[in-house]
Nucleic acid binder design. Structure first.
Lengths: 117, 117
DNA sequence: CATTTGTACAACCATTTGGTTGCATGTTAC
DNA sequence: GTAACATGCAACCAAATGGTTGTACAAATG
């Protein structure tokens, strides 16, 4: 999926990032791949709760799971972080565009004032 | 608030971005400041619904409102977008750190193999 | 084979979210 | 002053979230 993400995809990515536990899980699996139970051991909540968080992250594409025997290894999908960044970059580009347009208008005004003399 | 954002702040920012209508509102107000009713006119939903979206964006710090007579002017707060980007940058930096560590280990192995001969 | 371990999943619950309508209030225009 | 406009807010509703416990099952271990 190299093309522009759909609204629904972006919704899922930001939604997944909008929870401190899930952001922490992402950090951990970036540091090193983790089994679901490794992760579950780190938080105060139940195993099932952590498992659900991992499922949310997986649906968003921020992490991937691969089975290894009875274990499930969770690893990061850095490209998806990049997709989220791309969207923020786009917003910042829009902002710069606005600044540039404002600068251009100031230029014109200055030129007009100059011609008036 | 130049310091590291709290978890709760980051939660609110990503939560606010996790909705296509709200992302669109942010784009519009970046393009040009808008009154709440200007925005409301653009979407199929009720005025109150749009107003709520703006309120969510305001609480997250992505936009600011300033009153002008009876109108409320909504403008972007680009610094907050930067804060969200900062967090994604941090994740990508962690990833590069992992890559670097792996490269270092490969280096050591190569050196060891070399010494063995 | 029996047990433990790792994971998934269903059912349930409280809270939040995203929408609605209706009403209240302050501001501008006539 | 009255009417029209712009906004805010409360009450309500359905659906989604984030958590729980309990059950089921496959894989590793003794």
């Amino acid at each position: 999926m190299p093309s522009r993400p759909t609204d629904a995809e972006v919704d899922r990515i930001f939604q997944a990032l909008a929870d401190a536990t899930r952001r922490d899980i992402v950090r951990r699996v970036i540091g090193r791949e983790q089994r679901v139970s490794d992760l579950a051991g780190r938080y105060e909540m139940s195993f099932a709760a952590v498992q659900k968080h991992v499922a949310v992250l997986e649906r968003s594409g921020l992490v991937a799971k691969r089975r290894q025997g009875r274990e499930q290894i969770v690893s990061p999908v850095v490209a998806t972080i990049g997709r989220a960044r791309g969207l923020l970059d786009e917003l910042e580009a829009l902002w710069r565009g606005r600044i540039d347009r404002m600068a251009a208008i100031l230029q014109e005004d200055a030129a007009a004032a100059h011609a008036e003399r």
